[in-house]
Simulated scan of single mutants.
Amino acid sequence: MTAALPIVVGVDGSEPSLRAVDWAADEAALRGAPLRLVYASLWERYEGTSLADDLHKPSEEITADDIVDTAERRARQRRPAVTVSTGVLVEEPEYALVRESREASLLVTGTRGRSGLAEALLGSVSLTVAGHAHCPMVVIRGNHDNQAAHPVHGRVVVGIGEEGKESAAVRFAYEEARRRKVPLEAVRAWRTPARETTDHPLMSGELVRLHEQQAMDALESGLQSLPTDIEAHRRTVEGHARSVLVAASYDADLLVIGARRRPRTFGLQLGRVAHGALHHSACPVVIVPEPE
């Protein structure tokens, strides 16, 4: 039997990264996958106070080994049955994590903003890696109660694109809903283009119905090949896709979005929908690479 690829977590000693360890340990237990904890930096100096307080050391004395050892202990305490390994890489974290994603089933990071905005903004490392990872990447947003094994809201949400085709994101979302034994909610946002608006009330109503029907058709097309062994809900919402999906995240345990590669560019190029979700989602966000 082929060994399962690991779930890789980028750790840096910050509280958001330790929350990512918690989530990833739960996910590894669900999948029966090993967990790999990676710290990557060109600098030895630790930037933060949370880990320093826990270890009763000045922050300038915290080393890379302290960071991964703390993350490893946390993962083992949370999920003793999960196999855990660690790595310390002396290089820029963006490059290290993208390379690690080549041999991972899932890449997980926390949010980490600068200048004290850890929860308000997505850290530059997570945003860069999300745009180039070779496997699905999860950014852990939301509160401490967002756990893979113990769903809070009891649903996985996936965004359906305009093309309405079956996608890697839909398949990923289905598998996550099946593992968690929760419903899958597929959401398709739609809008009537400004150039098609008209002052005539009958014509205007017909245009609205047309675009709403197109959204419903895209939903059906995107889900038509899914197995029927889970509960699946379909929902169309008028509005900007990024706003619609962020709103849906408030009642979800996981928000799944696809990102398509572009020819002759490195990795993924994230659009406005993915950017909006990564910055503002109320729950963990998964960016799934979509093959051409």
Rank of each mutant, 00 (worst) to 15 (best):
K57Q: 15
R73A: 14
R76W: 01
P58S: 08
A75T: 06
R73L: 12
D54K: 13
E61F: 00
D66Q: 06
S50C: 08
A71Y: 04
E44M: 09
E60F: 10
A64V: 04
K57H: 06
L55H: 07
D65S: 13
R76H: 10
V68R: 07
A71W: 01
R45W: 02
E47N: 09
L51K: 02
S50Q: 07
R45N: 11
Q77G: 15
T63G: 08
I62P: 02
K57R: 15
K57I: 04
R73G: 10
H56T: 10
V68M: 08
Y46K: 00
D69R: 10
K57N: 05
Q77V: 12
E60R: 13
Y46N: 03
E61V: 04
R73W: 12
D69L: 11
D53F: 09
R74L: 12
T70Y: 14
I62H: 00
R45D: 10
P80W: 05
R73K: 14
T63K: 05
E72R: 15
T63M: 07
L55F: 07
D66E: 11
R79Y: 05
E47V: 15
A71S: 04
E44F: 05
L55K: 06
R45M: 11
T70I: 00
W43I: 00
P80L: 07
S50I: 09
H56Y: 01
T63P: 02
L55P: 04
G48A: 08
R45H: 08
H56R: 11
T70C: 03
T49Y: 03
D65F: 03
D54Y: 14
G48V: 09
P58M: 08
Y46G: 00
T70F: 12
D66C: 08
D66R: 05
T63S: 15
H56L: 12
R74W: 00
R76G: 00
T63D: 06
A64N: 04
R45S: 07
P80I: 07
E61W: 05
D66P: 06
D65P: 03
D69S: 13
G48M: 01
A71K: 02
